[in-house]
Design a protein around this nucleic acid. Sequence first.
RNA 1: GGGGCCGUAGCUCAGUCGGUAAGAGUGCCGCACUGUCACUGCGGAGGUCGCGGGUUCGAGCCCCGUCGGCCCCGCCA
Length: 597
Amino acid sequence: MTVPSLFATSRRSHLCGELRDAHVGETVRLGGWVHRTRSLGSIVFLDLRDRAGVLQATCDPRFTPLDVIAVAGRLGAETVVEVDGVVAVRPAEMVNRELVTGTIELQVTALRIVGPAVTPAIPVARGKDEKLAAEELRLKHRILDLRRPELQANLILRHRLLQVARQLMTSHGFLEIETPILTKTTPEGARDYLVPSRVHPGEFYALPQSPQIYKQLLMVAGFDRYFQIARCFRDEDLRADRQPEFAQIDIECAFVTQEDVQVVVERVLTALWKEAGHDIATPFERIRWADAMERFGIDKPDLRYGFELENWTAHVQPDAASFVLDGVAAGGKLRGIRVANGATWSRKEVDALAAVAKAQGLGGLLWAKRTDAGWEGQGAKAFGAATMERIGGVSGDLLLAGVGADAVALPAMGQVRLELTRRPEHLPTIAHAFCWIVDFPLFELDAASGEHMPAHHPFTAPHPDDTHKLETAPWECRAMHYDAVYNGNELGSGSIRITDPAVQETIFRLLKVPADEIQRRFAFLLDGLAAGAPPHGGFALGFDRIAMLLAGSTSLRDVIAFPKTTAARALFEGAPSPVSERDLAALSLAVLVKEKS
RNA sequence: GGGGCCGUAGCUCAGUCGGUAAGAGUGCCGCACUGUCACUGCGGAGGUCGCGGGUUCGAGCCCCGUCGGCCCCGCCA
């Protein structure tokens, strides 16, 4: 007898999928779902499935009562059964190498149907080339979809990652402290989910967009190192990598510098990647925000690829086309990308890239191909021979370029670069490319309103070297704000916070937040800062996104048990849904729009 | 708020130029089968072509609207 299974209960001895050669000869009792059946008449094979895997249970008249074989032969998929039997070695020629349990099988002696199942609306067991059901159906019949080994593996991985994060944080002296879900609007700038108060008619709680203010107050309260796997809610339009509710590994610590926080975050990420089977190197490369924009045209560069942006402005010669000269004279820059072996691209392929650049607001994408015969292409004409000479290139090169102000040309060329990295012939040079983006601007211009907004949130401390600019040139201030970036994905954001009430007031003044609004929204934070606040800072990691990346998936829905659709609906449970007039009245609410029929 | 793709049997899909009777695979039901592993063989049932309107002698196919799903922009860290 081997060691008893962790999963043994009064009704079973093991999980189906945990049995191995070492269990051969043991009499076991199992419970599981009928994954598939193969009835040969007198012999029936059942694939029994549970969260540990699939095991073949064999019903054979040599060891199985005939009435049991009869029942087994008519079992429908997804029926829950309990079986008794003996673990046996399979004959050598009957081994199934595709199953972890493929060298053994269960010789069934008894079988009970404990959970009859209607025919599943979408299949759980799938053949090798069989496609998944439409995602709409998978979300509607989520319990069936969740039975699929792939999603089981994803949620099991997610669990392990959560435990690793908790363990790492705890071992570094961080305290897990929960903060309210029913709270007050927070400063992230997304739309809030609101919850009406019954006892205070006309008043609403907001669900937290993050525990930002609470975690700062916990520092003021003396808890020194805090973390939480925090649920956050943002009422914005969704994407494959955005859900209306999501989890953050939320971190805050006192008496720290930016580097202290980064070390902790690097340790968390190292532990998480390790748990998923990857060894990564620390410290991560630090890239200043301004440099990231210059080199990659984006604040979350994918460092697995080259194609860095080049500044060719100084190469422009007087014989270049007038729109190039005018663009440069107006303060624009010439930003280019060099694609080795790109000269063989078709006009159609280049035009597709140009469309990407134009969609980003660039006037047009200039291109030039270098062949043995020399330069060709509209870009070569627009620049002129002298400029092309100075830009240089070797035969086979494709040069791509855009002229314009940094605010337009850099992001546009950054998107062109991203398109280049997506081409199948461009393979990543490394698997895991982490970096820190540091020295973000404190403010950014909001295109819609023309007003300055906090680049991160209004509690982010100005960079100490720029604090003196707060009065003279505030929009040039850099911030103590840093992002962790992985393979072109933003994993999280953090900052050192303002602890000087005078600086905080200056920021609010610059943002034109009216005094009464400051009082209404942030008094409890400002009072906290006045009550003796330690220097502090923190970070928030997007946990779902990390789980998605480590699961090798491209959608958050694959790592969330019950996710929402892109229209923020829950198809499985049917939320949101209308409520009765009575319920509305109790909340002193009235619905203005007609219900959809 | 905007753009794109999709919606035909339980599931995955085909359905040509608008034309007689809307098909396949799988699943489901029935029968046979003692070593299968996406078992096999034979037989059968199964359709509001998402929904509503329009054009037409005639619509799964064309047009308008609408609902739902996915992807993207805006928005959102």
